[in-house]
Simulated assay, not measured.
Amino acid sequence: MTQDLDNRRPLKVRDAAFARRMARSLAEAKVEPDVISATSVAFAVLGGALLMTAGALDNGLFRAVLFVLAALCIQARLLCNLLDGLVAVEHGRGGSAGPIWNELPDRIADVLLLAGAGYGVQSAGIAGGTAAGWIAAVLAVLTAYVRELGRGLGQPADFSGPMAKQQRMATLTAFCLISALEPLWRGHGAVLLCGLVVIAAGSLVTVIRRTGNLARGLRA
Rank of each mutant, 00 (worst) to 15 (best):
M169T: 11
R210Q: 06
L192V: 02
R77Y: 11
L66P: 04
C176K: 03
A164F: 07
A44Q: 08
N7W: 01
R77Q: 15
R186H: 14
R9L: 15
F43I: 07
T173A: 11
P99R: 13
G154R: 03
I135S: 07
A27R: 09
D58S: 10
A16C: 02
L204V: 07
E28C: 03
R147Y: 06
P99A: 09
L51C: 13
G161R: 09
L61F: 14
G94R: 02
V198C: 11
Q155L: 15
L5W: 07
L214A: 10
M163I: 10
R8D: 14
V146R: 00
A131M: 10
V198R: 05
R107D: 13
L61Y: 13
D106L: 05
A127W: 04
A164C: 06
A97I: 13
A42I: 15
L181I: 01
Q75H: 05
C176L: 07
L149G: 05
G94Y: 07
K165D: 09
G98E: 06
L46H: 03
P105M: 01
Q3G: 07
I74M: 05
F18C: 11
L50H: 07
E148S: 12
C73E: 02
L72P: 02
K30G: 04
A27V: 10
M52D: 01
V65H: 01
G98T: 03
A27W: 07
G195D: 06
G152V: 02
G129W: 07
R186S: 14
I208C: 09
V191P: 06
L83N: 05
H188A: 08
S123M: 13
L112V: 06
A170I: 09
L112A: 09
S179Y: 07
E32D: 13
I126Y: 00
A117Y: 11
L153D: 09
L104R: 14
